Amino acid sequence: MLEGKVKWFNSEKGFGFIEVEGQDDVFVHFSAIQGEGFKTLEEGQAVSFEIVEGNRGPQAANVTKEA
């Protein structure tokens, strides 16, 4: 699992990017966010995740919000 911070997330469109120190930003789709209820992320929020190869390159999977 990697750790990063949410760079930005558009809850209307359901996607955004996660910043990872020393690496390129990683695309995140709302469907990759773990948990119940409305799936969104806040700018600057700490998250842990895995990287998988998507249709358009690397993207986040199994995203969990850090306490």
Rank of each mutant, 00 (worst) to 15 (best):
N55I: 13
V20M: 12
I33L: 09
D24V: 13
Q59G: 04
N55F: 15
V63Q: 00
G54K: 09
E66I: 15
G37W: 06
F9Y: 09
M1W: 13
R56Y: 15
E36P: 10
H29T: 04
G37Q: 07
G22I: 04
W8Y: 08
E42P: 07
Q34M: 15
T64M: 11
V6T: 05
A67V: 12
N62E: 05
G37A: 08
N62F: 11
K65T: 10
F38V: 08
F49H: 01
K5M: 05
F9C: 02
A60V: 03
V52G: 07
V20T: 08
W8S: 04
S48A: 12
V63C: 04
A61M: 13
V28D: 00
G16I: 01
Q59A: 10
G14D: 01
G16F: 01
E21V: 13
Q23A: 10
K65M: 12
E12T: 14
G14I: 01
P58V: 11
G54C: 04
N10M: 07
E21I: 14
G22R: 07
E50S: 10
F49W: 02
A67Q: 11
N62C: 04
D24I: 12
K65A: 12
E43C: 06
A61D: 08
W8A: 03
V47C: 04
R56C: 05
E43W: 14
R56T: 09
E12D: 12
D24M: 13
I33K: 01
G14V: 01
T64K: 13
D25H: 06
K39Q: 14
E53D: 14
I18C: 02
F30A: 08
I33D: 01
E3S: 15
G4K: 01
V6S: 02
N10H: 08
M1L: 12
N10L: 08
G16D: 00
E36M: 10
E36K: 09
Q59N: 06
G37V: 06
G14F: 02
T40K: 09
V6K: 00
K5A: 05
F30C: 04
D25G: 04
S31Y: 06
F30M: 06
F49I: 04
F17C: 04
F15M: 10
Q34A: 12
G54W: 11
A61W: 11
S31D: 04
I33H: 01
L2N: 09
E50L: 10
W8I: 04
K65H: 09
F30I: 05
A67M: 10
L41Q: 01
Q34K: 14
P58N: 09
E19F: 13
D24E: 12
D25P: 08
V6Y: 01
P58M: 09
S31F: 06
F15H: 09
Q59T: 09
T40N: 09
D24L: 12
Q34T: 13
F27Q: 02
T64W: 14
V52E: 08
G37D: 11
E21A: 13
F17A: 04
E19T: 15
S48L: 12
E42Y: 13
A67W: 12
N62R: 11
F30L: 04
V6W: 02
A61N: 09
A67G: 11
V26K: 03
D24R: 14
E43P: 15
T64P: 02
S31Q: 07
K65V: 12
Q45N: 08
G44S: 06
F49C: 03
F17E: 02
G4W: 02
E21M: 14
F9V: 03
G44I: 02
V52A: 09
E21Q: 14
G44A: 06
K7D: 01
G35A: 10
K5C: 05
I51E: 03
Q59L: 07
S11A: 14
D25R: 05
E66Q: 15
E43K: 15
N62K: 14
K65G: 09
E19K: 14
A46L: 12
S11F: 13
Q59Y: 11
K7R: 12
F27M: 03
D24K: 12
Q23W: 12
M1F: 11
I33F: 06
F38A: 07
V6M: 03
E12V: 12
